[in-house]
Design a binder for these strands. Structure first.
Lengths: 342, 342
DNA sequence: CTGAAAGCGCTTACAG
DNA sequence: CTGAAAGCGCTTACAG
C-alpha cells in the first residue's frame, strides 16, 4: 500500500520547516532559490502532490468549475444531443487550459441542483447548459443569483432570466436560413420546433425566420409552426402533424438538426424527394448533418469559441468583474437539402 | 454577498454542539430523532451544505472519480471521437447514480497525468479512456499501479498492461463482421486500421477478421491491411493507399466507423458504388453511421452498459475488492453498406 | 529569507 | 444520546 507524503515529510528531509516547504512548492520568491530547488527535488522524488482538499479548504476556493447539463426529460436515456456533447468537449478543453478542473454532471430540470456545487465548495462556479423548459428553470436561476453563486449559462439572452448568458445569434441564424431558401425560390414555409417562451432559443430562430419572410413580402402563418423538442423522433412527429394538416409546403426550417433529421426521414418515407419536393434546413451543424442524405443545410455555431467564452466569462465573474451577455455570430452552412447545387 | 453557514452556525441556532450537528446531518442514528429533525430543518432553512473540502480532508476520500480521456494527438482539435463522447455520457450518468462526482479531463498521452488526480486527493479513482499509442501508455500504467492508484481502463485486455481493463469483445466483432460479408458473397477483403500492438483494440478486430477468413478457407494476405488511426481523414488516406497498391478488393472492413466514413467518401469520389462495387463495414455504431449513405454496417458496443461496468468496477476496486477484466458482448448491426437487402 | 502558530470546516474516537 | 477535543494537510499573517 502507499502512504502519501505530506509537506511535513518533505520538511523533515529537507531540514526546514513545513511552512517553508509550502512556500517553496508554490514557487514563492520569498524562499531562497537553493532551498526551493532542494525542496522541489525532494517533492518530485517522493512523488508528492499538494493535497487539494487541504489546500482548497484553507484557501477557500477549489480551482474547479462545474458543468451542469440539462436534458430534455423526454429524450432517450442514452442519446445526448450531439451539439451539447460537442460543447462539453470544448468546455472541458477550455477549463483545462485555464488551469481549472471540470466537474460534469447531468441534471434533471427538477433536481435540486441549484446551489449544490458552489455552496459545498466543490466548484468556484457553474456553467449551465441544455435545452429544456425554462419556466421552472427561471426560479432556480433567480435563487442561484440570490445566493451569490457564480454562474453563466448557454442560451438565449432573456431579460426574464437572472445571470449572464452566452449564446449564438439565433435570430440571425433563423433569418439567414430562411433568406437562403427564399433565394432558392421556395415560398411555402413551415417551421418545426417549439416557438414559445419555454424554448427561448427556438423561439428566436422562429422570430428570425418570420422576419425573413416578412422582408420578402410574404405573410407569416402561425399555423405553419409545429411544436417539436430537439430529438429526431419529435421532428418526425412534428412533420407528421404538418402533413396531417393538409397545408402545402415546399420548404421546412427545423429548429435543430436532430429535428431536421427526423423530418427528413418522415418525408422520405412518404415518398417525397428532398430537396426537389421540399427543401429542408436545420440548426447546429452537428457532425451527422453532413452525412445525412441529402446533406443538411444548417447553421453552424462555433462550439470551440463558445466553450472558451463560457469559461472565460465565468472566470471573470468569479474574480469579481462585471460580465455582460454575449451573442456569438453564426454561419450558414449550405448543403444539398435546401436545394442548392453543391 | 453571501456568507456561507457553517455547522457552528447551525449548532448555535439549535442550541446543541457542533458535533451533534455533524452527526445529525449525516443521519447518524446516535442522534435523537427530534434533535436531528430540528437540526436538519435549520440546515435547510440556512441553505447549508457540508463543505466538501473539509469533509473530504477529514475523511480522506473525495467521493469523486476522474475520467481521463486520451486523444490521438493527430486528431482534429475540435472533433472528439463520437464513440468516446457517448462513453463520456454514460460514465457521467453512472457516476452520478453511484453518488460520485465526475471530474473530466482531456489528456495528451505524453502529459504527466499519471498520479495527478488520485495523489492530490481530488479523486478516489481514475477511469482511462481513449485510443492511442500504447507503448508510452504502458509505462505510465505500471507506474500508476506501483503507486497504488485505483484505476480501470477501457480497452483491450492485454497481459502486458497493468490494471483492470473493461472492453468489448473486439475479436468477436471483427469475426462477425467478416463472416457477414462472406455470407454476402464477398471474397477479396481489405482491412483499414492499424493492426499492431500500439493499437490493441484494432489489432483484435483484425485478428477476428483473419480468423473468419481462415474459417472460410480463404488465405489471409497481410498486404491487404492498411494502417489508419481512428479519424475520417486517416480512413480516407488508408483507402487511397489501398487503391494505389493496385490490389483488387470487393469488401472493406474498417477498424472504426470514422475510418469507414473516410473510406466511403474516398471510394465514392473515385466513382465506385457502395455496396455494389465494394462492401464496407465499420466498428462502434456511432450515431452518424446510420445516416451515412449508404448506411453503415457496423458493430455496436453497448456504451451504457460499458459506463456502468467501468464505474462499478472502479468502485469495487476502491473498496478493496478483487476485480477482474471484463469482456462485453458485441452486436453486429447490418445496414446497406455491406450489401445486405435492408 | 525562515519558523511557530493559527485556522480553514469538518468527522470521529473518547468520555460521560 | 451528547459534548469537548483532536486532527485531516495545508496556507499565510505575524514575528523575527
Amino acid at each position: 500500500m502507499r502512504d502519501k507524503a505530506t509537506s511535513f515529510d518533505i520538511a523533515h528531509r529537507a531540514g526546514v520547516s513545513q511552512s517553508t516547504v509550502s512556500r517553496a512548492l508554490r514557487d514563492s520568491p520569498l524562499v531562497n532559490k537553493e532551498t526551493r530547488d532542494k525542496i522541489q527535488a525532494i517533492a518530485t522524488e517522493l512523488n508528492y502532490k499538494v493535497d487539494k482538499n487541504a489546500s482548497n479548504l484553507r484557501r477557500q476556493h477549489s480551482l474547479t468549475l462545474a458543468l451542469l447539463l440539462f436534458e430534455d426529460p423526454t429524450s432517450d436515456d442514452s442519446l445526448i444531443n450531439p451539439f451539447f456533447l460537442s460543447m462539453l468537449g470544448s468546455i472541458t478543453k477550455a477549463s483545462t487550459k485555464a488551469g481549472y478542473d471540470l466537474l460534469v454532471s447531468f441534471q434533471n430540470l427538477n433536481d435540486d441542483w441549484h446551489a449544490e456545487y458552489e455552496d459545498s465548495n466543490k466548484a468556484d462556479g457553474l456553467i449551465l447548459l441544455g435545452y429544456g423548459d425554462y419556466t421552472d428553470y427561471r426560479d432556480k436561476l433567480t435563487k442561484l443569483e440570490e445566493q451569490g453563486t457564480h454562474f453563466v449559462r448557454w442560451g438565449a439572452h432573456d431579460i426574464d432570466h437572472a445571470g449572464v448568458s452566452i449564446g449564438c445569434n439565433n435570430m440571425q441564424g433563423g433569418f439567414d436560413v430562411t433568406q437562403h431558401m427564399l433565394n432558392m425560390q421556395r415560398r411555402q414555409f413551415a417551421f418545426i420546433g417549439e416557438a414559445g417562451s419555454q424554448a427561448p432559443e427556438f423561439k428566436e430562430r422562429y422570430l428570425g425566420h418570420c422576419q425573413a419572410l416578412k422582408d420578402a413580402g410574404l405573410q407569416v402563418n402561425n399555423a405553419m409552426q409545429f411544436d417539436a423538442i430537439s430529438t429526431e423522433q419529435s421532428g418526425y412527429q412534428g412533420v407528421q402533424r404538418l402533413l396531417d394538416s393538409g397545408n402545402k409546403f415546399d420548404a421546412l426550417f427545423c429548429a435543430s438538426d436532430l429535428i431536421a433529421l427526423g423530418a427528413l426521414r418522415c418525408l422520405q418515407e412518404k415518398g417525397l424527394s428532398i430537396p426537389e419536393d421540399v427543401a429542408i434546413a436545420g440548426f447546429d451543424n452537428i457532425p451527422i448533418s453532413s452525412f445525412a442524405n441529402p446533406a443538411l443545410t444548417t447553421v453552424h455555431q462555433n462550439t470551440k469559441l463558445a466553450g472558451e467564452i463560457l469559461v472565460d466569462s465565468l472566470l471573470r465573474l468569479i474574480s469579481g468583474e462585471e460580465v455582460s451577455h454575449y451573442l456569438m455570430p453564426v454561419d450558414l452552412v449550405v448543403r444539398r437539402s435546401s436545394g442548392a447545387q453543391t
